[in-house]
Amino acid sequence: MVDVVSIIIAVVSLVGSLVAAGFTGWISFYIDQVKRRAESKALVHKYRDPLLLAAMDLQSRIYGLVQGGLLQFHDDEERRDLVFVYTAFLVGQYFSWTWILRRQAQFLRFSTEKQNRELSRMLESITDEFSTNDRSGEFPFMLWRGQQMAIGEMMTERDGDEWHCIGYSAFVKKYHTDDDFHRWFILIEKGLQALVVAREQHDSVAGFRLRRLQHRLIDLITLLDADGTGEGRDRRDKVDAAEKCKCIKCPAKPVPKSAAVSINKQKSEVNSDEMASSTV
């Protein structure tokens, strides 16, 4: 009888220990999850504004390139750098802030919340849009993932424990004096040259990638600034759609593979002076 009681007491004690251990483990897991969610929220909050501004600057520049009058200044000696070099800077600035965000997030479970998962998905869609090559002739501005990462890393500098994108004046100096730095932006220069040629030939295909990118950037901006109170809240219109665009609420009517550029050209020439002062 004593042996039976001892066995029962031992079993009860074992079950109690297992339950306590399981409860302690669950509590530890829950606390760890809460902590990581808080870290992810703090991370997004910290880099939301610079990423928002970088996306806003880049989408605005793309708008000027494919649906504004910026390209008419490509052979203007005084403004050429503001078309070519500043465009390269804006692309690099966006890659810099996404590189910083991903670097800081690599040790966090960044996709634990729905909004963070959506942010990761949108950043990935923009990366894909830059790197996609479907052999349809849309080669301008194609940058492989490694090239995007390299540009982002080269555009970033560290100040103590903080990372940030280099300024435009520092970029211009390196762009014109550092051949190793400059070579990463040659494809962007070639993309702009291709747009100039396409504009002269009234062919809009070369701009399809940029149109889709501008749409994706607008989607990203809308997510980052859901209440619409951030910078440039009145400058978030999507350009005319391009084929194969999968953005949110894409404009229904796509730009045809030829023509349409002449219409944009007429629009831009009417407001060329205004475009020059507002977007260059």
Rank of each mutant, 00 (worst) to 15 (best):
M56P: 00
A260P: 00
S40F: 01
E153F: 11
K267L: 13
A260F: 14
V15C: 12
V239R: 05
S125D: 12
T177A: 09
M56F: 03
V66M: 09
F29W: 13
S277P: 00
Q106A: 03
D240T: 12
D273Y: 08
L123Q: 05
E269Y: 11
S111E: 13
D159T: 12
M142Q: 15
H176L: 10
W144N: 11
G68R: 03
L192T: 04
T279W: 01
K35C: 03
A194M: 04
F185K: 01
R158S: 14
G160M: 10
W99M: 01
Q201D: 12
Y63Q: 07
A242V: 09
I9A: 14
L210M: 11
R216W: 12
Q201A: 13
R209V: 08
K174H: 08
K246S: 12
D180I: 06
N133V: 11
A54M: 05
K267M: 11
P254A: 13
A198F: 04
G68S: 04
S169A: 08
E243L: 13
L82F: 10
A198Y: 06
L217P: 01
K253L: 12
G68C: 05
H74I: 06
D225H: 07
D227H: 08
V19D: 02
H176I: 01
K257R: 15
A20W: 08
G160E: 12
F141K: 06
Q67E: 15
I9Y: 07
Y30I: 07
V91L: 07
L90G: 00
I221L: 01
F185V: 04
A54H: 02
N264D: 12
H202L: 06
D57S: 11
F29V: 09
I221E: 00
L217D: 02
V196K: 08
E113D: 09
E157D: 10
G25Y: 15
D128Q: 12
F110K: 01
G232M: 03
R117V: 03
S278M: 13
W97A: 00
I27C: 02
V66K: 04
F141T: 06
C247D: 04
Q33R: 15
E274F: 15
R183E: 13
R158Y: 03
L213R: 02
D128C: 00
D3W: 08
V261Q: 07
E189L: 10
L223P: 03
I186M: 07
S13W: 08
K190M: 13
W144Y: 12
F23L: 13
Y63H: 14
F141R: 08
E153D: 15
R121W: 05
L70R: 03
A206D: 07
D128P: 00
E269W: 07
D159W: 06
G232C: 06
Q193E: 15
